[in-house]
Design a protein around this nucleic acid. Structure first.
Lengths: 219, 219
DNA sequence: ATATGTATAAATGTATACAATTATACACGG
DNA sequence: CCGTGTATAATTGTATACATTTATACATAT
């Protein structure tokens, strides 16, 4: 089963199905049969069942008792809603991060910004992918730095959820460049211990992402 | 197994364990053994396992592979964080609800407010309980009315999460009275299609709850 | 031709059996 | 007395078997 080598069989199956949904192998309303998937991955039904049950609580799969497990659709509205929610919570997160961030975390953020700019310059085809990865990491570190496992978990969940739809959304080079600049501004505000500004910038950052989505007719 | 008569064995076990955690039968760091619980409820390990896995994603249980399932603690800080998050999201919810609410939902809210006041007057011992239930219902209807399954799910999750801690927090009669008044104000703003006001009132409503928690030395 | 009913197949739900991992008890050597 | 090592028990992880529910196919009746 490729390189899903961590943890138990169940969690490997979980990740595998998850990826297959995100990558589009399984699409909305597809039925996920325990036996079929089990045979495909060379495991019994048990770990597959557990994986499906967990995917349900993640919102990726919807289980109808005694019938089956189906891939849940994620609508454009869902994505829009998530960004609207994030546009308030990212600010809260930045504010808290300002109060709780450690030196190591600040360094890590510096490093991520640096790498982002590096990948940006390369202009390659996969650079967009790399920049997106860096964007994800930047926010993840910020989530951790908030010192709130509740807020962190919430925002990470949203991120995972949106990831599925994001494959269809192309980020323009201009937007990517601005995004990195915004990250730098947020980071600066946090360094300066200006919680108010950090909050405002982080919220605006997400609003800009929304505008970018709109620009591509995403709603 | 009492009255958990819906759905499958798994979901009944899920709800049962969930209640037992909320009611305090299982406490923080308690180990939940599959065999023990299974025998207690007269079912095999399989449904118990599934229940535990789902409880993990709900955040009530933490599973360490090959070791066991443990009741997750919910700290005072967690509760504080949730209210801080809610104090931004409830506003967003009220705003959206203003735009999407149906007549039936408005009626339902009227009814809930009415019942709240009824229970309030009774002054009984269980009235506090009833008022709390009504509070929960009021917010739940508002969540639905937002027309966003994402926001709704998020807020409901928070509510469930906090529920555990709330059993320890006593709501003063004065606060309960004010809370109902605030509900009425929010409802009025929504009826008047004043989204801005509804948002502000809903956010303040949660801030008042936080103040009330502080007053009882909750942090 | 459509609808209904029944038999069969296939899927999920649950229980049990076995494997792998971890905890516990106790002996032994320092 | 303390630490280490090993045997045993207990617990979780996975596979399989059985039960129940749902889907499919086909025959029959209207």
């Amino acid at each position: 089963m490729e390189d899903y080598q961590d943890h138990s069989l169940s969690s490997r199956v979980f990740q595998k199905i998850r990826d297959d949904i995100i990558k589009g192998k399984y699409q909305e309303h597809d039925e996920l049969r325990e036996n079929t998937i089990g045979k495909e991955l060379g495991v019994s039904r048990t770990p597959v069942r557990e994986a499906l049950r967990q995917l349900e609580l993640e919102g990726l799969v919807s289980i109808i008792p005694n019938k089956g497990a189906y891939v849940t659709g994620i609508s454009a509205k869902d994505v829009k809603d998530i960004y609207a929610i994030r546009s308030t919570l990212e600010g809260l997160c930045a504010r808290w991060a300002t109060e709780n961030i450690t030196e190591e975390q600040l360094d890590k953020l510096d490093e991520i910004v640096l790498l982002s700019e590096f990948h940006m310059k390369k202009e390659g085809k996969s650079n967009a992918e790399q920049v997106a990865v860096m964007d994800g990491r930047f926010h993840t570190v910020l989530y951790e730095a908030s010192g709130s496992r509740i807020l962190s978990r919430t925002l990470i969940d949203f991120h995972k959820y949106v990831q599925r739809a994001r494959k269809s959304s192309v980020v323009s080079e201009e937007r990517a460049r601005k995004s990195i600049r915004e990250h730098k501004q947020i980071l600066r505000a946090i360094r300066d211990k200006d919680a108010e500004l950090a909050e405002q910038l982080a919220n605006e950052h997400i609003l800009h992402v929304i505008q970018n989505l709109r620009r591509q007719g995403f709603e």
